[in-house]
């Protein structure tokens, strides 16, 4: 029985390869729009990015490669997000984002196979300080 592999060679080849840095200038309007989108009127967010702001600092090259790698599991979900913060991200900062695919895990369940893709992301500011780290699980099913 010939089947398309769940974990394609393209996807597997991404494991533990560091992508980036991708550069994001943290503009006042970008932070304001994010705070408005999450409906959080806290005046702190006029100067400081809200806690989930790293959602907007996407490592786009790895993301694109990960999501366009062939896979017979067509449906996609965000599984989980973890963030650890060392410093605030402030308006005016320039954040460099690097990321790697840390792990791929297949699980068999009643409803079929699920593929977990775990990405680790590092966010550094213009001084070279690591301001945050993220670990995100994405699911194909």
């Amino acid at each position: 029985m010939s089947e398309e592999p769940i974990i394609s060679q393209e996807l597997e080849s991404l494991l533990n390869v560091e992508f980036g840095p991708e550069i994001y200038e943290i503009e006042k309007g970008m932070v304001r729009k994010f705070a408005e989108a999450i409906d959080d009127p806290n005046p702190l967010w006029r100067q400081i990015a809200p806690p989930t702001f790293p959602a907007a600092l996407v490592p786009t090259e790895l993301w694109h490669k990960m999501t366009s790698a062939p896979c017979p599991l067509a449906r996609f979900l965000n599984g989980s997000s973890e963030l650890e913060y060392y410093q605030s991200i402030r308006v005016g900062d320039v954040i460099s984002v690097t990321a790697r695919l840390d792990k791929l895990r297949k699980m068999e369940g009643k409803e079929g196979t699920t593929l977990f893709m775990i990405m680790e992301t590092t966010y550094k500011n213009q001084k070279g300080d690591v301001v945050a780290r993220g670990r995100n699980t994405y699911i194909r099913y």
Partner: peptide, 8 residues
């Protein structure tokens, strides 16, 4: 805030 995590 030092850490924030959530499983969806």
């Amino acid at each position: 805030l030092v850490k924030l995590s959530g499983s969806y």
